[in-house]
Amino acid sequence: MTGGRSPEEPTAEAGHGAGAGRAADHPFDRGLQPERTALAWRRTALALTVGALAGLRILPQLFGTWAVIAAGAGVVLSVAVLVAAHRRYRASHRGLTAGRLGSSLPDGVLPAVTAGLALAAALAGIAVAVAAAGAGGLLHR
């Protein structure tokens, strides 16, 4: 995590006192944990978007026009995750620097949606792999 610093370090605890938080233009944590988490969300959402765009290219070749709707929904939802992750960072930064915990912090809705999207992508991947094998590859058609 943050180079072996103990959780009791005062800088990180500064945001915990109710109402006595530091100003919102300072990071909550000297280890920049919310910021690193925001970047992790960003690269995950972008990877999902790229995967959905690849699906938009590949799925209709194998499964016809209806697959465009599924892959298009994947693209839209992936971009929505990117936007929601940005809002999630803003909300958690505000909550943490204001010293609010509990219900003001993000919960598991966005992780659940993201896991669902990744699962859908993997199931589409199974369908593509099997169908491509049956058709003798994708690029040789």
């Binding site: 992790a40 990744a118 993997a122 994708l138």
Partner: peptide, 25 residues
């Protein structure tokens, strides 16, 4: 949360690898 996200990216990488293998031949 970051561990969760790392697993999601692992899922996408494995899926992409499997699809690419069949697609490229």
């Amino acid at each position: 949360e970051r561990t969760f996200l790392a697993w999601i990216r692992t899922a996408l990488a494995l899926t992409a690898g499997g699809v690419a293998l069949e697609a490229l031949g």
